[in-house]
Amino acid sequence: MDCPTCEAMVDAYVDGELSARDSVEFEAALAICTDCRQRLEAARTMSGLLRGLPADPAPDLLRARIERELRAIAGRPHERARERMRWAAVAASLIVAVGLGWLGGNLTGQGGRQSDEMIAGYLRVAMAETPVDVASSDRHTVKPWFVGRIDYAPPVHDLTAQGFPLLGGRLDVVDGRKVAVLVYRRNQHRLALTVWPAATAGNTSPDITVRDGFALARWRHAGFEMRAVSDLAPAEMGSFATALDKAADSGS
């Protein structure tokens, strides 16, 4: 094999696109051609560097926008559609229905953008195959996981006895700040609880609203702002908040 031939095969070799016969020929040629060995190394290095770039998944708001369009075209998703699709649709409509209002006055009180970010975070919990970054029903596993990942220690309580087993936790970003999201389960429903240190003192009782069959709760307890979203019935959302506050007060 002459060098121009072998040179032309370098990239196809790196990409695994040579036939078995060509590969054997190429490797034989390579053994006696320093130039082509260098080319091969260079091509492999470039390939490796590009493959080392972090994956950049589609933003949740993009998913929500597309979901909204699909819904507008087809109407509500079919009853038999997978659960996560139902969640996606509901959460997408939540963005429209709730808009900027519901989460207003949260982290920095600027409303707007961080509200969208938080709702997008619920989408992530609702739609992801793995809704949590740390999967454990043991609060002694979940709580330490947040150490070094966010700048506060979120209250983590297992509410299995009250019918809300802890699934785990994950991080979300709201207004550029990392916040803790705890994910609970009630039967086949998921519940996402976003928690961050309150700027004002005093407890408030849960304010529960319903949109599109979606229960939203916001309250402040023991120094933390709480925002919960689920497709539970509002009464059950109320039980959740009560159970959580009780657990916080008893330190369990």
Binding site: A58, L62, A74
Partner: peptide, 26 residues
């Protein structure tokens, strides 16, 4: 207008590749 069944099939066949579409678009 695509009917309901088409949209459902689209969700299953095409929508899972949204990450790829966005990555390439980026």
């Amino acid at each position: 207008t695509p009917d309901n069944r088409t949209v459902e099939r689209f969700r299953i066949v095409v929508l899972p590749h949204l990450d790829s579409a966005y990555g390439f678009a980026r």
